[in-house]
Write a protein that binds this DNA or RNA. Structure first.
Lengths: 487, 487
DNA sequence: GGGTATTTGTCCGTATGTATG
DNA sequence: TCATACATACGGACAAATACC
């Protein structure tokens, strides 16, 4: 056992430093161990010795040694001294080598993908399609509900959630879905998830890996095929833009055990799934023991008639997994979605997720539940709906005024937050977007929503939810100048 | 084409009903279609005809017909009439059959699992081990930060998040982890996840399905093996309670490419991973091209020395994936955890999650970032730390007073939120818990934290984080009465 | 077979009670 | 408290399709 107490251990203390003295001593000895200057079996200098050598008080050294002992660098032999433990220092990072590494490069295209949704100085007229109007979030009722939660439930934040009983939000959503969407279910069937993608992934977990094929509307909400493929499923695209027969044929021949669909407001076409198609879909699900994952997002906004009923309500919730969220009504920033699991899937669900804890802030859950119970949520949705209708009417008017039917075909009017347009001027997607941008207007390509076939030309999304009503007419005029300059 | 206009369609309107007249008409016709009373090709009565028959005005009928048309029950032949579409009604739920189904049965044991964490009238002294003190959540700074966010960022809630740049919270956490835990990373390496389980699942997604074996400390945080198995991994348990050599041997022979570990505060034993073991672990990771998932939860609370450094900092973040959360510092109800992905895993990460959107409320993220930036977070953690120390000291004192070393062995003192105790009275787990409960005290079995081997007898968790200090001494006396009645 | 009367949907507005802010 | 907005129900004028003479 080498006794380092013999030769002097060179510990330097800088009293001017911001780092406490005991930490300086601790760090230097750590560095000696990492660098091999101190090796296993070496004895540290005695407390008094080092205190004297470094010119500090004994308790200061003691504190450093205790830290070293707790961390296991040294062993404290009672009434004898501190002995360094043997240690394989080859891969220990010393301060010298811990230079900041270069930030990892992100893949090409990622930035472009996200920044298309970001702000851009060149854009005067942004026909964004899933954003809410600036300032539409009900901050005041939100904050007041937050105050109430903090006052009424002081223990909520401290406790781990007790998931043995349905939560307040599960019960509130169950009642809301019953009166608003005709959904019949028990609160235990309601699952709160952090966003639609997470909800889709959870549903897919009930199917992997036995049933390898799933189907989704094409064009359709892109997240479904992306998540499915990421989890190892094969995804069949069922044509959602070529009529009822093509759709049902596609479903029947898909061989899938799960179909993702948006019956009350197809994304991106904005159309309603006809009653006969719904009936055919349910017949398929019942006969082939398959399931429909109904994404009911945006069903709240309907400007000519009442909201169309959910597929789940037509089926009595037997073969339909229901999926909704708050992204289009309160805020996409909330990241809250909810599933209703059919009774016959619940045992599968419990097998996989019986002990899973919720992944959504319990505080925000309680808050949401109160907004729903108190009726503030539905009032807010109604108010927002009329606001959106003004944007819808303005956009539709302007488009019909500036373009004729041979130039622009429109689908999905009277609902949602966007129109689905086909521009018939022969331009490809990059050209359509770039020429609009050159006139100060931003529109969005529908191309990404095809995922197994090539997208047809000229399909665009024109959102009316976040653009100011006064900007709609000049924005549409800009689009006409961009696409039909001689018109 | 049958003309239903000929024979009268029996539509009854109840003017006393709460249901609007137009909806009553709509519903009745829907029911006729579902039941087959109206079939494909039938013509609906004309607007005027039905209006007269039902005794309502024409626009009312018009409204019902428009709803039916939008939903696709009928086709509108312009200026001619409404024709019913053919439809396969076999699986359409009619109102009669949609009786509420019985709530699905949950599996046995689920309720028991969760209710062990719930409240229980028999419990006077609850030594809960992961709960925070009632009222410890900083409601006032939270609410005031919420107000600030709503005021300063009115657009935050309306916009979809732009993930092309690191978020505020990513940057704040990066700086915090650097100063508090010695972590060197770029903000792009920080991933915000909705809870620890979700974070573990995301890490595992980087390894599936090529590397089928993962390893975890045993006993250890139960969520890791549960999530891993749920995702199809084989989990090897590495003994964490049998000394350094057994642990390192276990790691080396595991054949795993990922090890889950809690170096700064092993769960549940509460001990610190010694420096020599850390060095050996890093050597294994570097030599075998394996990765360590370091769960640094609870590292903030250390009552004798400074918090012990993270394994990630010793490694320079090369082979260590760092995992932290706010469950033990702010609130488990928040459901926020964070990962730091090593640079050499980032390309794999981008491959899988490049386009993934965050799953944590952006509002809460902004709020957390402000608490961190403003120093309120660290102040809160310090304040909570001293409060927990009082509980720790009281519990340790009481245990050493009531029990002697042959009756009760203690581990993991001076840190965390619980002590790891071995009761040497020959009782099994049910008996230990039940006898304590009979005296009004609740303690927690460590049994679930063994997942490949049988748990040894008598290991318990005694939490000191949420019990009132004044209750500690009588609670411990109750335990002594329960376990050593003659003592 | 063409003009006309009738039936049909379509579009315009208005009144009223209720809920909202 | 009161003005406003909204949902519901209603009536008339118009135009296209159809049936009939």
């Amino acid at each position: 056992m080498r006794n380092v107490g013999g030769r002097r251990l060179d510990v330097h203390v800088d009293r001017a430093s911001d780092v406490p003295v005991y930490q300086q001593i601790y760090r230097e000895i750590c560095a000696f161990v990492s660098s091999g200057a101190l090796v296993g079996g070496d004895r540290l200098p005695s407390l008094r010795q080092l205190a004297q050598d470094a010119g500090v008080s004994r308790p200061t050294v003691e504190r450093a040694y205790l830290q070293l002992e707790v961390e296991g660098y040294v062993e404290n032999v009672p009434q004898s001294g501190f002995v360094v433990r043997p240690l394989d220092a080859r891969f220990l990072q010393t301060t010298a080598t811990s230079a900041p590494t270069a930030p990892p490069k992100e893949p090409a295209g990622r930035g472009a993908f996200f920044s298309q949704f970001g702000s851009d100085a060149r854009v005067t007229y942004d026909f964004a399609f899933a954003q809410l109007p600036e300032g539409s979030f009900p901050s005041d009722v939100w904050l007041s509900a937050a105050r109430d939660v903090m006052r009424d439930e002081p223990g909520l934040a401290a406790r781990y959630l007790d998931e043995s009983r349905p939560s307040h939000l599960q019960r509130s959503l169950c009642a809301y879905l019953r009166r608003a969407r005709g959904i019949t279910c028990d609160p235990t069937q309601v699952v709160i998830m952090p966003g639609t993608a997470a909800a889709i992934a959870r549903v897919l977990r009930l199917f992997a890996p036995r049933d390898g094929v799933v189907a989704g509307e094409e064009p359709g909400y892109r997240v479904f095929p992306d998540v499915s493929r990421g989890m190892g499923f094969r995804v069949v695209g069922v044509p959602s833009d070529q009529g009822a027969q093509a759709f049902l044929d596609g479903v029947r021949s898909s061989g899938a055990s799960l179909l993702f669909a948006t019956p009350s407001h197809q994304f991106p076409t904005g159309e309603v799934m006809r009653a006969d198609v719904r009936a055919g879909l349910l017949a398929w699900a019942h006969e082939d023991n398959a399931w429909v994952l109904e994404d009911d997002s945006c069903s709240e906004y309907r400007y000519d008639v009442d909201p169309v009923p959910s597929l789940q309500s037509l089926d009595g919730g037997r073969r339909v997994i229901y999926l909704g969220n708050f992204s289009k009504t309160l805020s996409p920033a909330l990241r809250v979605a909810y599933l209703v699991i059919p009774p016959d899937l619940m045992s599968r669900y419990y097998d996989a997720f019986s002990l899973a804890m919720t992944e959504v802030s319990v505080i925000e859950q309680e808050l949401l539940a109160r907004l729903i119970d108190g009726g503030e949520y539905e009032r807010h949705v109604r108010r927002l709906g009329t606001r959106l209708r003004h944007g819808h009417d303005a956009l539709l008017d302007a488009l019909l005024r500036e373009f004729d039917g041979t130039q622009l075909e429109l689908r999905g009017a009277n609902a949602g937050m966007h129109l689905f347009a086909t521009v018939c001027n022969g331009m490809g997607y990059p050209e359509l977007l770039a020429s609009a941008l050159a006139q100060g207007a931003r529109v969005y390509a529908a191309e990404p929503y095809w995922f197994t076939r090539a997208a047809p030309r000229g399909r665009l999304l024109l959102g009316f939810s976040s653009i100011a009503v006064k900007d709609v007419a000049p924005g549409v005029a800009a689009l006409r100048r961009a696409w039909f300059p001689r018109g």
